[in-house]
Nucleic acid binder design. Structure first.
Length: 548
RNA sequence: GGUCCGUUGGAGAAGUGGUUUAACUCACAUGCCUUUCACGCAUGCAUACACGGGUUCGAAUCCCGUACGGGCUACCA
């Protein structure tokens, strides 16, 4: 059989040979320990926490080792492509501050190993496929989809493994004449690799995360080039990660099953095998109470956009993912709350082996703990970023009067006060809270009837003096309480609650609502000091009026 | 069906033959603090090593089997 002739028949007009591409993408000039990793999403228009999880691991390992992290778009399946999806992917990674050294988003200077869209690399794959054909390691297959379905049916009824292999691989040994006839008939064909593996042969393979795993040899003549001339994932992966000099292939464990295919392809092409690291899948609890993989279709709330829209701080989300990624991260972070996560030594062998449940409670906790450490300036920067990224124009007015915004943030969140709040989880909540301060009358929430509230407020204003210090101020509130049948001492109230209408705490709450619009806030005296005499009294008077 | 991976309290997770009466974080509860809430501190809860055999003086840790969960089994990635 003249394989070279076969190869020329199938691929009559390719510009270059394999050597051309091998020379075009020389070994990267990097320090010895440097690792090269990539994330290779397909443009389906949906990326979720799982993608970010993987990207963060990639990014850390690459940059920690002074290596390279790049973005490749796996757009080999035209059916899956969604318009605008690539932009969405890039903008999401951008929001979460995952930075690439090279790749799809860096156009026009995307890097020296491009193109980074697989669609644009079609000719490269074909060139290598041609070489395999010329060496007798791959062959054209003219089977139609219908025929393949029929085969599968038969295999199932015979209780044999499905697929294109062994005696079922009917196109394996077509003669040149037969191929010529098919071509003359303008029949579509795919290129399949000619597997030499035996499914019975087992060996162990070292995965950087999973450890030693057992793999069987592949015996399937899988498709490497589809009828449209575009490669399948398997072939593209082997070619790209070789030419782009990826050193660690980090991907989801759903790829473990096809690892034997990739191993055989690497061997067949004579390429050096990269290291593999298969990460666990993020899970959630189903409505039915069972654990299951996060799904694009069923779990829209787990899309990255969900967190962006609510305004989770990107760094907080990363902190959470890091705790899932490396078990020792959390304790490191507790010890070093002010150290950036980039200082943490990330390692593959500290990754979990079983599917981690996504835990919103924990994310929220990490998120609010993180926000609670913010200074006034940091908080404003974050809110500005959030408001502009979400185009929430109705909130932009808050930034026009920074002095006022400062006051309100200080009041509401205890920023720059000793009593830091820790009950804000994400941006949307904070903006809501700011809104409450602007429209501060929540008379519905008073803990007493309106008549009483009004009386208390009127008496409070009469004796209020901006110059009073905290303790004098509070003495007055106590007096006010006592005059109206409220306990002025908490202890006394707790011992005999039936003797009073309430306690000084209840009186404080009435004033607090009148001043801030909130039932809860930091220390009231300080708030009124910050708001200023005039505005404090205005707010109370306004409330009194509304109670009439 | 075949094949691969996994299974430690409600959740994440450490521990890979003997200071383990199994860390730590979240959740939950209680107490202290306190003019509210939150914070902080302290305490507690949680009947946690999937099950059954085996190896061993000794097993969460090693071996075998079973169950359960998940992945793959496409001209999808």
């Amino acid at each position: 059989m003249d394989y070279q002739k076969l190869a020329d028949m199938l691929f009559p007009k390719l510009k270059h040979d394999c050597q051309y591409y091998i020379d075009k993408y020389p070994k990267r000039d990097l320090p010895e320990k440097a690792e090269v990793l990539r994330i290779a999403p397909s443009p389906t228009g949906f990326i979720h926490l799982g993608n970010l999880y993987g990207a963060l691991a990639d990014e850390r390992i690459a940059h920690q080792s002074e290596g390279v992290f790049f973005l490749r778009i796996e757009d080999t399946d035209s059916k899956r492509k969604v318009p605008g999806a690539v932009d969405a992917i890039i903008s999401s990674f951008d929001y979460f501050q995952i930075y690439f050294d090279e790749g799809a988003h860096h156009q026009p200077h995307e890097g020296n190993y491009g193109p980074y869209y697989q669609k644009q690399r079609a000719e490269i794959y074909q060139t290598f496929a041609k070489r395999l054909v010329s060496e007798g390691k791959a062959y054209p297959c003219f089977c139609s989809g219908k025929q393949l379905t029929e085969k599968r049916k038969q295999q199932k009824s015979l209780n044999e493994a499905t697929g294109y292999y062994g005696k079922w691989a009917t196109c394996r040994n077509l003669s040149l004449e037969e191929v010529q006839t098919h071509l003359d008939n303008k029949e579509k064909f795919v290129i399949r690799m000619r597997s030499t593996g035996n499914i019975e042969n087992q060996s162990t393979f070292h995965d950087e995360i999973k450890g030693d795993i057992t793999v069987r040899e592949n015996d399937q003549d899988i498709v490497i080039i589809k009828t449209d001339g575009i490669p399948t994932y398997h072939f593209a992966h082997v070619i790209d990660d070789t030419l782009m000099h990826t050193t660690i292939v980090l991907r989801g464990e759903e790829w473990l099953g096809t690892l034997p295919v990739h191993l055989e392809l690497f061997k067949m092409l004579g390429f050096k095998l990269p290291k593999y690291a298969h990460t666990t899948v993020l899970m959630k609890i189903d409505e039915t109470g069972t654990k299951r993989k996060l799904s694009k279709r069923k779990d829209p709330e787990l899309s990255l956009d969900y967190y962006r829209q609510l305004g989770y701080h990107p760094y907080a989300v990363k902190l959470y993912l890091m705790t899932l990624l490396n078990w020792n991260f959390e304790q490191w972070h507790l010890k070093n709350p002010d150290t950036h996560l980039e200082e943490f030594k990330f390692s593959l062998d500290k990754m979990g082996q079983s599917g981690a449940l996504f835990d919103l409670d924990k994310l929220n906790n990490i998120s609010k703990t993180y926000l609670a450490r913010f200074s006034l300036e940091e908080m404003k920067d974050f809110l500005k970023m959030y408001v502009s990224s979400q185009k929430k124009e109705e909130y932009e007015m808050y930034f026009d009067n920074e002095e006022y915004l400062d006051k309100i943030l200080t009041l509401g969140m205890g920023l720059d006060l000793r009593k830091r709040r820790k009950d804000y989880i994400y941006g949307a909540q904070i903006l809501e809270s700011i809104d409450l301060f602007y429209h501060h009358n929540r008379v519905d929430d008073f803990n007493c009837d309106e008549e009483t509230a009004k009386t208390l407020l009127e008496q409070f204003v009469e004796t209020y003096d901006y110059g009073d210090d905290n303790s004098l101020w509070f003495e007055k509130v106590k007096e006010l309480s006592a005059n109206n049948g409220y306990a002025s001492e908490m202890k006394a109230y707790r011992e005999n609650p039936e003797n009073y209408r309430g306690s000084v705490a209840d009186v404080s709450e009435v004033i607090r609502i009148a001043v801030t619009g909130h039932k809860n806030s930091p220390d009231l005296w300080t708030i009124m000091q910050i708001l200023g005499k005039e505005e404090s009294i205005n707010r109370i008077n306004k409330t009194i009026k509304e109670l009439d």
